[in-house]
Design a protein around this nucleic acid. Sequence first.
RNA 1: GCGAAAGUGGCGGAAUUGGUAUACGCACUGGACUUAGAAUCCAGCGGAGUAAUCCAUGGGGGUUCAAGUCCCCCCUUUCGCACCA
Length: 981
Amino acid sequence: MEQEKNYDFSLIEKKWQDKWLNGNDYYVDDMPIDSNKNKEKFYCLEMFPYPSGRIHMGHVRNYSIGDAIARFKGLKGYYVLHPIGFDSFGLPAENAAIKNKTNPKEWTYKNIETMEVQLKKLGLSYDWDRKIITSDSSYYKWEQLFFIQMFKKGLAYKKLSRVNWCESCHTTLANEQVENGKCWRCDNEITVKSMDQWFLKITDYAEELLAELDNLDGWPDKVKIMQKNWIGKSEGLSLFFKIDTASEKTDLELEIFTTRPDTIFGATYLAISPLHTLAKNLLKTENAKIKTEELIRKSLISKEITEKEGVFTGSYAINPFNMKKLPIYIANFVLMDYGTGAIMSVPAHDERDFEFAKKYNIEIIEVVSNQNDAAVSSNAFNNISGNNDYNHNVINNNYNNKSLNGEGSVKLANDSELISPFTGEGILINSSVFNGLISKEAKSAISLEAEKMGFGKRVTNYRLKDWGISRQRYWGCPIPIVYCEKCGAVPLNEKDLPLELPENVVFTGEGESPLARLDSFIDTCCPVCGGKAKRETDTMDTFVESSWYYAKYTSKSDNAFTESDFTNNSNGNSKCNNKNKDADKENIKFINNNSDNNSNINNSGSVVYRKYSNGCAYEINNNINNADPAYTIQSPFDKKAANYWLPVDQYIGGVEHAVMHLLYARFFVKVLRDLGYLNINEPFKNLLTQGMVVKNGAKMSKSKGNVVDPDDLINKYGSDTVRLFSLFAAPPEKDLEWNDKGVEGSYRFINKIYKIVMVYEKYLQNIEINNLKNLIVLNQNFFEKTDIELKEINNELNGIIKKSEAEMEERFHFNTIISSCMELVNKIYDYYRKQNNINIETIDTDDTIKTFKIEQTQKQKYEYESDKYLLKHIFNSILIILYPFIPHICSECFEILGSSINIESAGWPEIIATGYKIEACSIAVQINGKLRSQITANIDLEQQDILNLSLEDKKIKKYIDNISAIKKSIYIKNKLINIII
RNA sequence: GCGAAAGUGGCGGAAUUGGUAUACGCACUGGACUUAGAAUCCAGCGGAGUAAUCCAUGGGGGUUCAAGUCCCCCCUUUCGCACCA
């Protein structure tokens, strides 16, 4: 019953949603036509949802932000693309299927249906015609096409490697998907497993991915820093050490990587990873062998190290700079998958080396002196590096003469002297001819020397690893590869795509993916030789789908690709036929290649060789445009449309994707560019990362029992209220603390707007203000007699219009816009009260909506017609400003007040000058910087006048009895005066 | 350990360029209306103090006529990376 006194949101919201959807109000063309041609484009995108069942508060927040921006841009006259879809492959579907003994597809598509209804109830301005469901074969066939093309370019490859394994999800994970040694999805402990896996060669793009970060001005620094760290570029020196085993001299060499070549003379041992290929060869004692086995075993199960451990191999390496014999250790802290898996250890200048050396009692030699220690180093520095040009010949000669027994002058740091290593840069000591150089110079001098002498080379290393995309699960995009006994791993013919995911599978929840047991799927024939072959049964990581969906949105339909183009959709039945002709058309030619080199891919030329374990290698022509002439190159998007809309102008989503999705998508855009599909370098021009929605300080989750279901709130208060609160309670980048009482506050505010609009409905209905500006131009004195209080309100409105526009374009602090609107609405209420000497109240009646009493009192109000014009302008403006946040109620109120156009086409409010001048202002009076009083003064007075006025003030008089005591005063015009005594 | 962000009433937060700290909202207190409650409306609301006044933007210094804002040191919290050589 109480609800009756409030506005009927369900009626109003339904009305507008129907209008928007039935009228295709948010439909956009691939390429703008007619009047839209003159508009500037704006592509607004929120990260699409995984259809987990129902939408949650995080979605509501994300989409409310996106919708606010999209609608604002529409008001500003942009041609706005605002699409939505579903990222529908993934594990939860499969887990649900196992639990319910159904097919994941059923579960997923049912969820999509539910969520679509929910999203529509929120009144979001999506072009639903562009909806993408990534588990539709019409979507993922393109992904398979990309995969094949990447494979042909060597950007997709299969490799036996140690990968992250999640036993609970029963699949492998990419490095980006491991958080603190745990699975990003289920929090299960990750183990290491050796498996044959498909990788995408993101490392080929490491340098570009890093360099382009500098151009992403519209991205938060936080995300850029995270990506930069993740890519982890470091420049250093690769050095080759000859191995000198105890008994015999060998030709074996050990390659190490260091970023501190300047400390080479301080190296006292080498350390290699237990998983290093040479590890076992170097072992000389039984004891070492046993210990090494243990280290290997430990490194195989986990990457976590609790304590540094190692064992001396019994072998030595020769430091090529001073011929010093260095013991080689196997050490658990040396990572196999970074650099070369071997390091030179300089305990005096590295924390880890130091800790290890202390534990195993290894010599420590200081070779870099802290620059503050000037007494020792300044002389040497002056002597040797008087000029910065490193003179090769001179130094080289010196070095040859001195190097063999440089130890004469070496200072050993014994235990008592050195408590901790000095890891900074400084001046070289104990380093033969390099003594006196500062670290920076020494790095390049020593590197150059190593290169010149042929025992080293400068290299750049990245922490970024190739993206492992194989998943041993069913509900994902099938990898379009078959394994032929003769030909090895062969991609499907492009025109046989899609390779559909079979639906006749059984879920047991045990062991491997159902695909791996489905013979009708596995058994097939080779697209090259027509012989027997087996399909790849791994599916792709779901992050592949989300790496390019934003590009697919730009075209409503596929580009010139129809079902009739498919021949022999090879799903399931595997009658082998002769497909050799197809192979020729694909320009794939097989060659015999018995070289052992099976991992290097030549990216510079157009021809790539790969060899598989069965000895069958083939040559691939990279020119993808050179396929079957009857079969034109296909694309999921119209290149023109893609290039028109992309990049995404504003992307909005959770910060948790900073190094997963957001890095993969950047990589994919570069690949698609290089494959000829797109001509952009970066997918997302501006990025807004929103915070989480939390309750009682914790992330909402079923296990914590603090989940708030948006649906309940929408039913209770309407979606405008829910949207408003999620934008008002915090700025978007911060976490949002959910507060049920706060939601009521937002509801109250919307009711307040509605009530005051109803009050003025009859009064303003027939006032048409669409050409208010013209009226003013024609009649300069239009507002001359207008109520001064209305002019005051308008003056404040002008400030809000300006401020809101700036916020909507840059900072997105919607909360501040909303609060100024609240203030203004409160002012209108005050105005009403003053004018009518009465409060706005409701009459108890069964009529629901229009029951607000309008009481005109004694004085005849609104004497002048211009009052109405100005008041209506104020109302319309505030409704337009709020429209991006609460579109239903604003549309409704705009309509109630009467207009020949609807709110969407009204445009962003204009600033109307009424000739209003603020006459007086309040000025703060400080004495010695402390606030002592406030005075009211005419505007724009000069300092002396303000000072005089201040001195007349009662409170100020108390402090200043004698004018001569004033030393000086500082005046900030119309704001503040500070009197110094 | 490294890197980043942040710390303002009981709470969410405002103060974009150094210029009246605590806007707006929530909660709370009192009042009006009501048989009563809900809703609505009005008023109050950083702390101490009867008051004058004093103290308050994590703590301590500094620059300045003036610091939440700038500089230095420290503390705490959150996030990211974590033996990356």
